[in-house]
């Protein structure tokens, strides 16, 4: 497994990259809540949210086609249920499922593509997520690629021997489990020997800039205005 492309994107230096992660998290939640509670038609929704998405793409400097390709990759699940709605004789519902799903994906990609995962997790902790969950997610992401690389090596070795059989696959998974367990014990001992309390320390938050604070407020104002305008 290669490092996800989002991790590379999140190292940019655009205005959106530099904005406070907490503001960006609140902004994306504002967009998702407005989208989730909207009863507008698909065309209305697209007209309402496309300016936000285009501004976000412009402000972040992320490759528009790259982002769109990832949105399309996510849409397979939505497409299946949209087709089911179409078969059930509800074409508008089908369109709504696709539109809401695509717009939500753009919003999350813009957030995750401009904020490194540690920043996202710190923002979640700031919002009240349990510390144990945040620490677990940090360690998970840190060792994910190491273990996946090991699993790939095991699979390559098995393929050279003619592929996995049921029992050997069970043995391989157990060996991987043992390796992960051993690694976790090693990390724990190393952290204890350095006097660490068993969690990753994070620096204190800096005071956010006015523009960062204004981002979720401006979004909420725009989306409220747009909804009122459509309802007139």
């Amino acid at each position: 497994m290669r490092r996800p492309v989002l991790e590379e994107w999140s190292r940019g230096d655009s205005w959106l990259h530099c904005a406070d992660p907490r503001s960006k998290l609140i902004a994306v939640l504002v967009v998702l809540v407005f989208l989730g509670t909207s009863r507008a038609r698909p065309a209305q929704l697209a007209a309402e949210y496309l300016p936000v998405i285009l501004l976000g793409l412009g402000g972040s400097g992320l490759p528009p086609w790259g982002v769109t390709k990832r949105v399309l990759a996510v849409m397979t699940f939505s497409a299946a249920f949209s087709a089911a709605a179409w078969i059930a004789g509800q074409p508008e519902r089908a369109g709504l499922l696709l539109t809401k799903s695509a717009l939500s994906s753009y919003a999350i990609l813009l957030f995750a593509g401009t904020t490194p995962l540690p920043g996202i997790l710190r923002s979640l902790e700031w919002l009240g997520a349990p510390r144990l969950l945040v620490q677990t997610t940090q360690f998970l992401y840190r060792y994910l690629f190491v273990l996946v690389a090991k699993a790939r090596q095991m699979r390559a070795a098995a393929l050279c021997r003619g592929g996995f059989r049921w029992e050997s696959a069970g043995g391989a998974a157990a060996a991987l489990f043992g390796s992960a367990y051993g690694r976790a014990e090693g990390i724990h001992r190393a952290m204890l020997s350095r006097g660490a309390a068993g969690h990753i320390a994070s620096p204190p938050w800096q005071r956010p800039e006015a523009a960062s604070v204004g981002l979720p407020c401006a979004l909420a104002l725009y989306l409220t205005g747009a909804r009122l305008l459509w309802n007139l």
């Binding site: 997610t137 360690f139 273990l147 996995f164 489990f177 992960a180 367990y181 990390i187």
Partner: peptide, 24 residues
């Protein structure tokens, strides 16, 4: 036990990695 968050995190990474191992 205090400071066992690494164990939980690495076991989460194991679940991802174990999905590479195919069972015929």
């Amino acid at each position: 036990e205090e400071g066992r968050a690494p164990l939980l995190g690495v076991m989460g990474a194991f679940v991802f990695a174990a999905q590479i191992v195919n069972f015929p």
